[in-house]
Simulated scan of single mutants.
Amino acid sequence: LTGEIITTPFCYVATTASIVWEGCRPVFVDIHPAYLTIEETKIEAAITSKTSAILATHVFGNPCHVEAIETIAKKHHLKVIYDAAHCFGVNYNGQSIFNYGDVSTCSFHATKLFHTGEGGAMIANDEALHEKLFYSHNFGHNGPLDFYGLGINAKMSELQAAMGLALLPYMEMILNERRKVVDFYNVNLDFSKLKGLKIRENTDWNYSYYPIIFENETQLLKTEKALNEHQIMPRRYFYPSLNTINYAKGQAMPISESIATRILCLPLYMELAEKQLNKICNLIND
């Protein structure tokens, strides 16, 4: 890929950084205020003769409007890469979200739903591209004595693989327990002054994060302080909007910038007791 890559300002910094590392220029497109994914209706206006790809993020495991993005990409002969870091176990329209786009990446970092301590996966629908990605992550090796081409060391260690294999049999139980936490928040939080994440229709979600959006940053900071005083540690995620970081030099993205200052991800994990959940909800509601 060369030139300009259309991307979202509302995701983790690694997404924008990968574009800059490759000598390309990130061109930001603002986000949908409810789904928090890239606003597909604004993508075409950002395409120029230098555009070579769209790099979009399935935010908190919530799918982008993949059909619209595919249509735009085909029309303008662009590649589509999905940052699907949060998407382990997500299905959209009855199939894995990883089936969409030219390449999807999934994170196995320790903070993720399924993890190996560190690491991740790359998924490609084209066999030749998959083969190139695979040899590239292992120094370019073709067996012990030959090489396909240039590569780096991006292999997963045996210890990381063991961690993943130990966790894999419990994923159904983990998803069920996380669903219970999400259901509790949905019922017990006061949404008269908060907004939650709108999950895209036809999505089987994985309950990866529970973000809430405040009316203003002052209210967020007040609530965060109250939670911290009770040793409850929510996360400002994603913050800041990536168009504002020094090396990105992006244009103003009003929706992303506003939401980034007002969004807080609440604790969400197995064995989060009802007593603790009640305390979290009461502190937020108060």
Score class of each variant (00 low, 15 high):
85 A>V: 06
76 H>L: 05
255 I>N: 04
150 L>E: 13
132 K>Y: 11
277 L>W: 06
212 I>K: 04
102 D>T: 12
262 R>T: 08
146 D>F: 07
55 L>A: 04
178 R>S: 05
165 L>Y: 13
129 L>G: 00
169 P>S: 10
152 I>D: 09
225 K>Y: 14
179 R>G: 04
133 L>Q: 11
71 T>C: 08
54 I>E: 02
133 L>Y: 11
198 K>F: 06
190 D>V: 12
259 I>E: 05
56 A>G: 14
193 K>F: 08
275 K>W: 00
15 T>G: 03
42 K>P: 03
235 R>N: 02
191 F>L: 12
124 A>P: 01
72 I>F: 07
221 L>K: 10
68 A>E: 09
4 E>P: 00
247 Y>S: 11
213 I>Y: 08
183 D>C: 13
58 H>T: 05
87 C>M: 13
34 A>N: 08
236 R>P: 01
61 G>E: 01
3 G>F: 02
236 R>W: 01
86 H>I: 03
122 M>V: 14
169 P>F: 07
224 E>K: 14
230 H>E: 15
142 N>D: 14
165 L>S: 13
176 N>T: 10
67 E>D: 14
200 R>S: 09
169 P>C: 09
10 F>V: 08
174 I>Q: 10
271 E>F: 13
229 E>W: 05
171 M>H: 03
246 N>K: 15
99 N>I: 09
167 L>S: 02
42 K>F: 12
242 L>V: 07
264 L>R: 04
199 I>K: 07
232 I>Q: 04
135 Y>I: 10
208 S>G: 14
32 H>S: 01
120 G>V: 01
231 Q>L: 10
188 N>F: 08
219 Q>M: 09
102 D>L: 08
185 Y>L: 02
